[in-house]
Design a protein around this nucleic acid. Structure first.
Lengths: 174, 174
DNA sequence: TCGCTATATGGGATATCATGGGAAATTATG
DNA sequence: CATAATTTCCCATGATATCCCATATAGCGA
């Protein structure tokens, strides 16, 4: 699971270190790489490992070749995504288009979102982060939203429906 | 289950011992670590083990990728959380941002909250603790609140509805 | 009362991570 | 095919985090 936020330098060669904790999540993937694409709904990049990309591929494939939504997502996600290989010290090189899309400067913020992560311009992220944290505190005042969130019951429902999942989560920690 | 409160030193390297009774709860987790994040609604840290974090992940994942509440919680919880590994004597190292957020000084208070725990500046905690005890006494005067609490019936309902889940929670001590 | 064991805490040595720069290999271009 | 541009690989370095050992303290049992 990708968690935590950290800032990293983008050097003159457009290289940036991927947080070591993210690389640990990716151990076992067939390629020593991440998949990244400029997100269609904002000035940031979305990325993840093999599983992340396969989830998109499967969602799109399930729609079928002639589904308009599928065609849109093919272009917006699969067409926009690149596999970025790690160098020996755990860095990737960001394509110029990605840097421009996310308005990245000398530093970039990696934000863990569970099954995937986002890459932001640090100022944009700081702004968004404080907005989101304030919104989260607000949400906790609203019983309807609290109920929607589930209060930790979601996992228990999963375990109830599939007891073996509990062992899996325990072992994998992912 | 995380219970009881104890104070521990934060040393020059920002290390702090996690109460032994908490570590015992975490035995069996895939990593010898806790997950902690600066809470969005106050100057304290919230933490727990693998199950604690998976509950957040599952709650957020259930809302789906495009739910605004889910996005808020991704940033406020998953993006803010870090896995803090124990050293051989059961200490963790607190990141500087965490110390600043919770205004921790030379000592920190660990407060058990069942499935999770909180870390507080000792003065803030003392104040809050007496407020909460007073509030609890008040609540018991209100029949509506007393009814909501359930009077100990909740566990019996849980066991009746799903013996295997009850067994899982029992083994995990959470 | 005297150790024994758990736990808690401090400090120095070591390993890992992030990052910069140069050399070699690859690709694009005329 | 030759040259320039770019990318990939490799090594160096400083900062930080991790490991390991030493000591202190408290509870427990003989």
């Amino acid at each position: 699971m990708f968690i935590s936020t950290s800032e990293h330098s983008v050097d003159a060669k457009n290289r940036v270190s991927v947080p070591a904790s993210y690389r640990e999540v990716l151990r076992g993937d067939p390629h020593d790489a991440i998949y990244v694409f400029p997100h269609f709904s904002g000035a940031y990049l979305e990325g993840g490992g093999e599983l992340f990309m396969q989830q998109y591929r499967a969602d799109i494939a399930r729609l079928g070749r002639y589904d308009p939504l599928g065609q849109i997502m093919e272009v917006a996600v699969l067409g926009a995504a690149k596999r970025l290989d790690f160098d020996s010290t755990g860095r990737i090189t960001l394509p110029k288009e990605f840097i421009e899309h996310a308005r990245l400067g000398k530093r970039a913020a990696f934000v863990g979102c569970g099954s995937r992560f986002e890459v932001w311009n640090v100022e944009d992220h700081a702004r968004r982060s404080s907005d989101m944290r304030e919104a989260a505190a607000q949400m906790m005042q609203d019983p309807e939203q609290v109920a929607r969130l589930g209060g930790g019951q979601s996992l228990e429902s999963l375990i109830k429906s599939s007891p073996s999942l509990a062992d899996f989560l325990n072992r994998r920690g992912s």
